[in-house]
Design a protein around this nucleic acid. Structure first.
Length: 263
DNA sequence: ATACGGCCACACAG
DNA sequence: GCTGTGTGGCCGTA
């Protein structure tokens, strides 16, 4: 099962080292070589059902103020199936709900959005409130798998669909008031693997005292990234444009929203 | 949670 | 080696 770290290209990019991701993994990386290594969920599915009964091999990703855990939650065959089902089930927002205003101009967000969750929950995104649609069977299944793997219960999921590498998300923090600050955000990826970048808040201006390197990783098909407190208070994250990516990725970020936490 | 342009660096192909 | 093209990091501006 040594198939977690992947790297789709080389270059000047300062990816998280293997030691950061998982001490002692260097040998595997050498074996994989640096080129287009797909990630690598096992193809054989003999332990398809036992997967959830055994503890998931997590990789710890740490930097100062950053605390994440990464794992392959779904084997390829199952991830494929979930992806297909979501493509059939999920209904994305349309019209004005996909528009955002920045510096007086209105833009369509460069991706598709959907919100699902417990009855009555709303999620405020860039000034707009969205009512959560009721859980679909597939979303409920994924939610329960995430809960089993993490021990955390979630009442809401924000779905972002990136149709190809031109769809992206700019740097931001998930710092909405309505989020339970102590509950991690669980990010499930299905479809095309995409690069994901964390940057420390103090590294966002030219003039900063200390240099704090960004932390970069690739989110694989079927993977789960847990962003633990206090990651979201110190680190911004983004999903940068990757022009070579031509297939879609669906990202599900499970959250716990506090009913009373509104402004 | 935007886009865009400027500047720079790198990878690749011819 | 060179040069052009494409990509991407990073920043500033609106």
């Amino acid at each position: 099962m040594d198939t977690f770290v992947s790297r789709t290209r080389k270059g000047p990019i300062d990816w998280a080292t293997d030691e950061q991701r998982e001490p002692g993994r260097n040998k595997i990386e050498e074996k994989c070589n640096q080129d287009i290594i797909k990630n690598t969920v096992k193809e054989e599915e003999d332990d398809y059902f036992t997967g959830f009964l055994e503890p998931i091999p997590w990789q710890k990703i740490e930097a100062e103020g950053l605390d994440c855990d990464y794992a392959l939650l779904f084997p390829k065959q199952e991830a494929d199936k979930l992806y297909t089902q979501l493509e059939e089930e999920v209904v994305y927002l349309t019209g004005d709900k996909t528009k955002i205003q920045v510096f007086g101009k209105v833009y369509s967000v460069p991706r598709k959005l959907a919100t699902y969750g417990d009855t009555g929950l709303t999620y405020t995104y860039s000034g707009l409130s969205h009512q959560a649609s009721p859980w679909t069977p597939t979303l409920r299944y994924i939610r329960d798998a995430v809960t089993k793997a993490t021990g955390h219960a979630f009442n809401f999921v924000l779905i972002n669909r990136y149709k190809d590498g031109h769809d992206h998300m700019g740097e931001h923090r998930d710092d909405e008031r309505e989020l339970d600050p102590l509950c991690p955000i669980a990010s499930v990826s299905l479809g095309a693997p995409r690069d994901f970048v964390f940057r420390h808040q103090e590294a966002r201006r030219k003039q900063h005292r200390r240099q704090i390197n960004p932390v970069k990783l690739e989110l694989a098909h079927g993977s789960l990234l847990l962003m633990n407190s206090p990651t979201n208070t110190h680190w911004y994250h983004s999903l940068p444009v990757r022009k070579r990516v031509i297939t879609p990725r669906i990202n599900l970020t499970f959250r716990r929203i506090l009913q009373d936490g509104k402004k």
